[in-house]
Amino acid sequence: MAKIDSEVGGDVTFFHTSQLDQLINLARENSLWYLLFGLACCGIELIQTGGPRADLMRFGAIPRASPRQADFMIVAGTLTYKMAERAKLLYDQMSEPKYVISMGSCANCGGLFQLAYSVCKGVDKVVPVDVYVPGCPPRPEALTEGLIRLQDKVRNERWQDKRRAPVQGTGAA
């Protein structure tokens, strides 16, 4: 212990927290539960990714119907203006730390529907996005890759940094 102390300049607290971070991150990255948010075509691929063949659950990702139980949100499909407000509401209802995977071209940038008058050109106009999965629709393998990238991100961050100051007032009003 003393040797380690001398190596890190006597900062034992720092040593311990960084290990705890890794431990917590290990737990967090392997139990990322996602909010079922199938909006359009990608929603069917999302179901099939959670289905028996692609089996997203082996990575610890379990679908939840309630945003309050979810760690991250897979925005699967076209976001229209009418739905954008609801998507924001759902994002606000999730507890910190929270992440967003944008699945498919429509959620990334509006995709096929650039000429549409009622489609929001990308979900990142409404909520912050962590991982973009391209494809129209992405194959289950692509979505699995997206989840693995998200796990990488979770592994390499300090979970305390993800805590944000509580929002004043409610966004739901």
């Binding site: 359009a40 076209t78 229209t80 739905m83 000429l115 549409a116 009622s118 489609v119």
Partner: peptide, 14 residues
């Protein structure tokens, strides 16, 4: 309804 209204009929005219 209308949460997935993607203006497909309008796009068909373009």
């Amino acid at each position: 309804v209308g949460y997935l209204h993607r203006s497909i009929e309008k796009i068909g005219e373009v």
